[in-house]
């Protein structure tokens, strides 16, 4: 038996919206430690890693670790049946092999309870070991600013160059019709009065050129949190981390370009 209760369905709805453009089907792992998933996009250029810790749920029970395969488009449709403020219960019974994942949504005044279930699927997916790394540069910035920059530069070109120095981070793109760039200067302290401030921890200047279509997908996670951190080292995948308050994170990894 697995059973996880989230105080607000809206968090899970936003998570699925953040993932479904990049990934159509994924295995979800349930364990004593919580719920996690790792999946690559169909081209194996981007990797997504979600973690929801057990103690971030209103209640959490997992008698035996289970891996359940879901179609994220179907899950997204199902979650549209939940009110944002509904309490959401996810449960599955593994006595005879789980073939469906069940959801119940209870309104704040407890007067309405709806129940839905999602058929599970067998998914044979490659998984990778993500090494712990010290990055050369970590940019911490507003997630809405990140979304805006990606949207603005997508009107100019197909790739963005992200150049991080001690002074700031510059996003630039060029295409047939022209070019554009946005420079965000490093602020010494990110406090409550400067929600849009950017801070950069850096050992040495780093630059990456990345496809904007993947970053547009990653930006779908912006509604989950006010901040995003971009972790960069030359010649290794760039990691974009969106922390989900009190419960976990979504991390996206994007493979860099390599010399032919």
């Amino acid at each position: 038996m697995i059973e996880a209760v989230l105080a607000q369905a809206s968090i899970f709805k936003k998570i699925v919206e953040a993932l479904k453009e990049l990934i159509s089907e994924t295995n979800i792992d349930f364990s004593e430690a919580g719920i996690s998933l790792q999946a690559m996009d169909s081209s194996h250029i981007a990797l997504c890693n979600l973690l929801l810790r057990d103690d971030g749920f209103k209640s959490y029970r997992c008698d035996r670790a289970l891996t359940l395969g879901v179609n994220l488009n179907s899950l997204s449709k199902l979650l549209k049946c939940a009110g944002n403020d509904d309490e959401m219960r996810i449960f599955a019974n593994d006595d005879s092999g789980a073939d469906q994942l069940n959801f119940s949504f209870e309104s704040a005044n407890s007067e309405r309870v709806s129940e839905f279930s999602l058929k599970l699927m067998d998914i044979d997916a490659d998984s990778v070991d993500i090494p712990d790394m010290d990055y050369q540069a970590i940019i911490d910035m507003s997630s809405s600013e990140f979304s805006r920059i990606i949207r603005d530069l997508s009107s100019v070109g197909e790739a963005v160059s992200i150049d991080a120095t001690k002074q700031g981070v510059k996003f630039s793109s060029a295409g047939d019709a022209g070019k554009g760039s946005i420079l965000l200067k490093h602020q010494k302290s990110v406090d409550g009065d400067s929600a849009l401030a950017t801070s950069i921890e850096i050992n040495e200047p780093v630059s990456h050129s990345l496809a904007l279509k993947f970053l547009s997908s990653f930006a779908k996670a912006a509604p989950l949190t006010d901040r995003v951190s971009i972790h960069m080292t030359e010649d290794v995948p760039v990691m974009f981390e969106f922390k989900i308050s009190e419960i976990g994170h979504i991390r996206f990894y994007l493979a860099p370009q390599i010399d032919d």
């Binding site: 081209s43 194996h44 070991d129 995948p237 990894y253 493979a255 370009q257 390599i258 032919d260």
Partner: peptide
């Protein structure tokens, strides 16, 4: 010339 890398070229398959 540069080509787009894949995740599996950087992280070992688990």
């Amino acid at each position: 010339a540069q080509a787009q890398g894949k995740i599996g070229e950087f992280f070992p398959l688990g």
